[in-house]
Design a binder for these strands. Structure first.
Lengths: 250, 250
DNA sequence: CGAGTTATGGTCACGGTGACCTGAACGGAG
DNA sequence: CTCCGTTCAGGTCACCGTGACCATAACTCG
């Protein structure tokens, strides 16, 4: 329709970034309890954390930013997100979903840049493997420094999506291993939603949802009645993980 | 990180497309009742329709496709969507929200193309102004021909989003004028959700939600008790219309 | 005026939820 | 070995939103 759109549009840069969420202890410790092993069970309240990388190039050199990079010609958007994740943080997320495409004209001071942003959930034991260093560190999601570009806005939006989706979808297990106790699962909800939940009511809701089933095993070693282990059945759809997700039939 | 990403990525084309939804009579008539005027009230069941444009260039020349085009260097993504809408269908949507970024490697046979897709809701009186022709026509959203590229997938996803969001958000009024009767509002829900709703229960829910208020006016002329007119209060947030939407405080 | 139609208001049974209580099953202290 | 503190696990109960349904109101048209 316009005169010279194809030629001009070719110079818009296309990048991907990812907001990676993991649960860690409030003091920053990597949340010892991997998949509910016999460990003495960290019961300190967990909070939401995310890894950031320090920019080593202009513009905004030195500032913390979301991991990301340009999209290659021969990779999909999600593929580009996974590649950048592996390259910068060595993470292979349990859950990965597109969040939003940010494309304001002046969001990057250099050239015109459109970023397709993904958000990811990783298990604590995975998160612990992130090689920290001068240029990669974990930050509490609710108390971030001033980030590069519009990344503060992006993280806030991703955090809102995480908390909203946690209330109506079954994504909590992406923070846990294959087997988990109800207390651990409840801990995930409490960490994300930032409010205590009644253990008995939580149990009733989870059991009636059909999303989990008992494995038969229990966890011994605690100074109390041994809790049963559960796993996700997969019966409950992960609602709206994108257009390619099989939808619940009407 | 990679070797030549910036240079290669520069040649990925960035486009926007929009799925435009409007309600029309099942036979395709433009849904006479504009903003609940004195007209004799079309009470034929409405269904969801969308306008498509015929491609006049290769690739996929001749096929029907979503209205859209390339993003210019000096316009935002939403701005590009609005411009393309105005250019191809002369529409200024009441509601416009980003849907998803589609970026599979082979979704366009020609060159690598990433499309940021928006979805829009327009009022019937607006929709009636769309200049139809050989290359612009309305189609029922649930019975589409084979479209160009991956546009069938896109429309299906947009339709799923519309129906899902209709159940928990207050977007129905985007299909109506400033003032409307509860029957008209209920008709929107019934058309989108494809199921009849109890008039009395619907009234109760709408009134208790605080989303609407009576204007004081009524509609006379029907062969029955005159219904009150309502308007949206704006108190109820349009949930999740993107990162820039003010969020409900915790 | 009566018939037909929709608007509007009310009742009632049911299911899910939050608040709360009680017993079960462990480890540890004495 | 017993008592105790803890969490697990199962249950009760009041409340509220919902769907199904009934009744009356208020208009037009024949």
């Amino acid at each position: 329709m316009s005169n010279s759109d194809a030629a001009r549009a070719a110079s818009i840069g296309l990048a991907v970034s990812t907001v990676i969420f993991a649960l860690r202890d409030a003091d920053g410790a990597p949340r010892a309890t991997p998949p509910s092993a016999g460990g003495q069970g960290t019961d300190a309240p967990a909070t939401v954390w995310l890894p950031l990388v320090r920019r080593i190039r202009e513009p905004q050199c030195g500032r913390w930013a979301l991991p990301g990079g340009m999209v290659e010609l021969d990779e999909s958007l999600e593929g580009a997100a996974r590649r950048n994740l592996a390259e910068t943080t060595e993470l292979q997320p349990t859950y990965l979903e597109q969040l939003y495409a940010f494309g304001d004209v002046n969001r990057s001071p250099d050239r015109r840049l459109v970023s397709v942003v993904y958000w990811a959930l990783v298990r604590p034991d995975e998160a612990a493997q992130v090689t920290l260093g001068e240029n990669v560190q974990w930050f509490p999601a609710d108390d971030l420094p001033e980030l590069a570009f519009d990344h503060n806005l992006i993280v806030d939006y991703a955090l809102w999506r995480l908390r909203t989706k946690m209330e109506y979808s079954a994504i909590a297990h992406a923070f846990l291993g294959d087997e988990f106790t109800l207390a651990e699962l409840r801990g995930v909800y409490e960490a994300v939603l930032q409010k205590p939940l009644d253990p008995a009511n939580f149990r009733r809701q989870m059991e009636s949802s059909g999303a989990i089933e008992a494995t038969g095993g229990v966890v011994t070693g605690g100074r109390h009645r041994p809790p049963k282990l559960y796993r996700y059945t997969g019966d409950v759809q992960l609602v709206d993980a994108g257009p390619l997700t099989p939808r619940i039939p009407a």
